[in-house]
Structures are given as C-alpha cells and as structure tokens.
Simulated assay, not measured.
Amino acid sequence: MNEEQVERLCQIAPKYGLTLEHQGLTITKVNDQATTLDTTAYMPDQFVDLLAKIIATNMKADLWQWK
C-alpha cells in the first residue's frame, strides 16, 4: 500500500466500525489498541481482509463473553 491509500483507509474505516491511526505507512492503532502493522507488506485488498479478520475475531470474543 502507499501512503495515500493508508490515509484513505483511515478516513473510511469509521464507516465500517473501525478507527485507525497511522504514522506514515504503519497503522499504529486499531480501535484504540496499539499495534504496529506495516502496510507495505500488503496489497490493499489483502490489508482490508486482515482488518475484516480483526473485526471477526473481536465479534467472536464478544459473543462468547456475552452474559
């Protein structure tokens, strides 16, 4: 990914229930959780798939912790 794509992704992420922060080409926060995701290692569609997996993992955790 390039920096323009990362910036755009951070702008549209809230539409899909995510908040992303970045420094250059590195995603530094996903939903206020610190991380270090190097976006240069991914094609844009691959990175979107990774974010979808993060959402799915969080949803599963919430489901099983439901009371």
Rank of each mutant, 00 (worst) to 15 (best):
P44V: 14
P14W: 05
A41I: 13
K60Y: 01
T28M: 12
Y16V: 08
Y16W: 01
P14T: 14
V48F: 00
N2S: 07
T19E: 10
T28W: 01
Y16M: 08
W66G: 03
K67Q: 11
T39Q: 07
E7C: 08
K15R: 08
Q65H: 02
M1L: 13
T19I: 12
M59D: 09
T39A: 09
H22G: 07
I55L: 13
I54W: 03
A56E: 12
E4D: 11
H22N: 14
L20W: 00
T57M: 14
K60F: 03
D45T: 14
T36I: 13
L9C: 05
L51P: 00
V48H: 01
K15Y: 02
M43T: 09
Y42R: 07
P44K: 09
I27L: 09
M59F: 01
D32I: 13
K53V: 13
W64P: 00
H22I: 15
M59H: 01
R8S: 11
L63I: 14
A34G: 04
W66L: 14
G17D: 04
R8T: 13
T19N: 09
G24W: 06
Q11A: 12
K29N: 10
V6L: 12
T26D: 07
L9S: 06
F47H: 02
T35N: 06
D49K: 09
